[in-house]
Design a binder for these strands. Structure first.
Length: 748
RNA sequence: UGGGGUAUCGCCAAGCGGUAAGGCAUCAGCUUUUGGUGCUGACAUUCGGGGGUUCGAAUCCCUCUACCCCAUCCA
């Protein structure tokens, strides 16, 4: 649990601490128009996870405002996905469609306020009136309709008096807004369609932008978490709630959606796979759907863990599928029984063995703290994996060869005596001999083997079907069907497994020793015809080494960045720039910053009138003041130019250090207090007396012997560490220049 | 092109002016009757590029670049 907090949890914590909300309420709000995939899992883990972490609650809400795409079967799949992942929603499942009456009333309220109007422009014209990203839009002629007319029209829209598309209800915001979403967004459209839940009651349906924020509000949601593509919609979200005067309301926060390499996540592309027959339905074990992972054998824990590991941020990213595979291996490693299964059988006859015996074997290796064992039948004729014998072994081969004995796991050591081939030269059988005194657990043979391999007794083994999956796409960032891997499914009809797996059924998931993790297919498995899905292979450093092709070292060409052209200065800016560099001796960068920004230059000039310290003044104005002026006007600032001059005066006098000056500045930004008062009140006067600083340094040096050694060994960047420690100990008041000098002497 | 975002190791990702966390992947070594697991170690003199401010910058300022989102009566 030492994991650092993500930005959402940081926000939630702050909001709880500040008392903005008493309780955190989140929601998972999918539209029930498709099957949930692992991207939904991320969202589920975030929303339910945050609610759980802060003792709040999370609702499951179907965002079902579009009657033409939604269906009950998706509602069920979504509910099941949340449950499968191990989360509980508060009370019943919510439906935006249940809020239709309330949402409708809010629309009426907006009309009455003159903030919404019925527009009867056709679709095409509306698009052209909306303008483009660079050109402002124009309002339609219907925007001036009276409140009464709007009310009347809207009611008749609801009653079903108009055809689809004849009218819409729009918010009256700003047709020239830079944010396209704010150009009088649509709030209602006419849809004469049957809603899977609301039936035929409604002829008008609210749009996402209107319904979502209100649904969040109605449910008392505090943190409305969604993906990055809704960033632009946030302004509408806020506009609706603010205009309606709804207080104690939710705020929207966005995170980056999940991408995994060799995988597609879009509903449309997933649907193409299903419809195109590339996979066998939504729950095909190769699909990145919850149903697919579940059928494949992934555990809810592993998916949750994965969502935890990848973190939450705002950068678009592509997670390596290896991270997911690690999670399922990691989970199953400590849980699942080990059994023996031969996928590609090669017959071995043990010439010197007669009769049969039962070998006792634990289901779990020593490092897994679980109990349980079974009997494994053993006799003269067994199967081993074809891969585990090599007539002409490559270097570093640990398994059975004509010269090299091998242990049969849980049984005896065997040695190859004869290789039987068919007329084509294919190996069909191995004749071997066993060492009677090499029995597992009581080996006195003294024979050293390099490896222990899995095997099954031919007579007692059960035939099983094993489905081995490879990644669905051959491209790391697949675009569509053209990138599908044609060999993503291998069905092995004649694999052989030890009988206890079928008769004892110690679990549903197994590790087939040395091969990977497998899952009894929940749909097709029967005792008569057992079917197993391969969940994931074991890590295989031998196969990896073998397959290592000399990858041509990429040319590592350091990417050259081309600098764009800087906009030329205007004449006035140029004059100012010249004055700053020539008369005031500012460096060109600072002069440039100041000269190009009218707010900054005027602020600077004003401060200069009070104090003749052009360079220091310029520095603080072009750096610190610039930050405050980015989104504000000068008259919105709590401090003024005279106060900045007073602050700089103290730096010039060496009353305070630059570091303290920044601290004082922060305070001025917040309170507008006089800098001198702040310095006095907080006792921030700089300590430059070496005799006061010296003992503190001694103490720090004494407390950090390791770092002192490292420093003396040449790790000079540690000087910063020591300076930091001393400054921390003095509340930032020590004169850093003095500290540096002293430190350099003492650490020598 | 206006606006809104984002850039830290091969892939994720912390970091909020004072020693560049952690996970995955990779590579070594030890352990091992799974070429698994476990353990140990290695793996960013540097944070998209360039400048500036500072004793000190991934963090503050300026500037450039690249990528993502927005002009559905979808969500």
């Amino acid at each position: 649990m030492s994991k650092s907090k993500d930005f959402l949890r940081t926000i939630v914590e702050e909001d709880l601490k500040s008392g903005k909300y008493k309780e955190v309420v989140t929601r998972f709000p999918p539209e029930p128009n498709g099957f949930p995939h692992i991207g939904h899992a991320k969202s589920i883990c975030i929303n339910f996870g945050i609610a759980k972490d802060y003792d709040g609650h999370c609702n499951l809400r179907m965002d079902d405002t579009n009657p033409t795409t939604e269906d009950t079967k998706y509602v069920e799949a979504l509910k099941h996905a949340v449950e499968w992942l191990g989360f509980n929603w508060k009370d019943n499942v919510r439906f935006t469609s249940d809020y239709f009456p309330q949402i409708y009333n809010y629309a009426i309220e907006l009309i009455k306020m003159g903030k919404a109007y019925v527009d009867s422009t056709n679709e095409e014209e509306m698009r052209s009136l909306r303008g483009t990203v660079t050109e402002p839009g124009r309002r339609s002629k219907y925007a001036d309709r009276s409140v009464e007319e709007n009310l009347d029209l809207f009611e008749r829209m609801k009653k079903g008096e108009f055809k689809d598309g004849e009218h819409v209800l729009r918010a009256k915001i700003d047709m020239s807004a830079a944010n396209m979403k704010m150009r009088d967004p649509l709030m209602y459209r006419i849809r004469h369609a049957h809603h899977y839940r609301a039936g035929d009651e409604w002829s008008v349906y609210p749009m996402y932008d209107f319904a979502h924020c209100l649904s969040d509000y109605i449910e008392g949601v505090s943190h409305s978490i969604c993906t990055l593509e809704f960033e632009n919609n946030r302004d509408v979200y806020n506009w609706v709630l603010d205009t309606l005067g709804l207080s104690l309301r939710p705020y929207q926060h966005e995170f980056a959606r999940l991408g995994i390499n060799y995988t597609v996540m879009s509903k449309r592309k997933l649907l193409e796979l299903v419809n195109g027959g590339q996979v066998n339905g939504w729950d095909d074990p190769r699909m990145p759907t919850i149903a697919g992972y579940s059928r494949r054998g992934y555990t809810p824990e592993s998916i949750r863990n994965f969502c935890d590991q990848i973190g939450i941020a705002k950068a678009n990213s592509m997670v390596d599928v290896a991270q997911l595979e690690f999670c399922i291996r990691d989970d199953l490693n400590t849980k699942v029984p080990r059994v023996m299964c031969v996928l590609d059988p090669l017959k071995v006859t043990i010439l010197n063995y007669e009769g049969t015996e039962e070998l006792n074997a634990s289901y779990y290796p020593e490092d897994v703290p679980k109990e349980g064992s079974r009997q494994i039948p053993f006799s003269k004729e067994i199967y081993i994996e074809r891969d585990d014998f090599s007539e002409n072994p490559p270097k570093g081969y640990f398994r059975l060869t004509p010269e090299q004995p091998v242990r049969l796991k849980h049984a005896y050591i065997i040695t190859c005596k004869e290789i039987i081939k068919d007329s084509d030269g294919n190996i069909v059988e191995i004749k071997a001999e066993y060492s009677p005194d090499s029995k597992s657990g009581q080996d006195t043979s003294g024979i050293k083997v390099k490896s222990a391999i899995q095997w099954v007794d031919i007579k007692e083994a059960r035939k099983v079907e094993v489905r081995v999956y490879d990644r669905l796409f051959k491209d790391e960032a697949p675009q569509g069907l053209e990138d599908v891997n044609p060999d993503s499914l291998h069905v092995i009809k004649n694999a052989f497994i030890e009988p206890a797996v079928i008769t004892q059924k110690p679990d549903e998931r197994f590790q087939f020793e040395r091969q990977g993790y497998f899952y009894a297919d929940p749909v097709d498995y029967t005792d008569v015809k057992p079917v197993f899905n391969k969940i994931v292979g074991l890590k295989d450093s031998y196969a990896k080494k073998k397959n290592t092709v000399e990858i041509t070292p990429k040319p590592q060409a350091k990417k050259v960045q081309i600098d764009g052209e800087v906009v030329a200065m205007s004449d006035t800016e140029q004059t100012l720039f010249d004055k700053y560099t020539n008369e005031l001796k500012l460096n060109s960068e600072v002069a440039n910053t100041l000269a190009r920004d009218e707010k900054l230059s005027s602020f600077y000039e004003e401060s200069l009138a009070t104090l003749n310290s052009p360079v220091n003044l310029a520095n603080i104005v072009s750096n610190e003041v610039a930050r405050e002026l980015k989104e504000k006007q000068i008259n919105e600032l709590k401090f003024n130019a005279r106060q900045i001059a007073a602050l700089v005066k103290m730096i010039d006098d060496e009353t305070i250090s630059n570091k303290i000056a920044k601290q004082v500045f922060e305070e001025m930004v917040k309170s507008g207090e006089e800098p001198i008062k702040i310095v006095e009140a907080k006792g921030l006067i700089q300590i430059s007396d070496p005799s006061k600083i010296s003992p503190i340094i001694d103490e720090i040096i004494e407390k950090n012997p390791d770092n002192v050694t490292k420093f003396r060994e040449g790790n000079t960047k540690l000087l910063g560490f020591f300076v930091g420690q001393v400054l921390k100990a003095t509340g930032g008041k020590a004169n850093p220049k003095v500290v540096n000098e002293l430190l350099a002497q003492k650490l020598k």
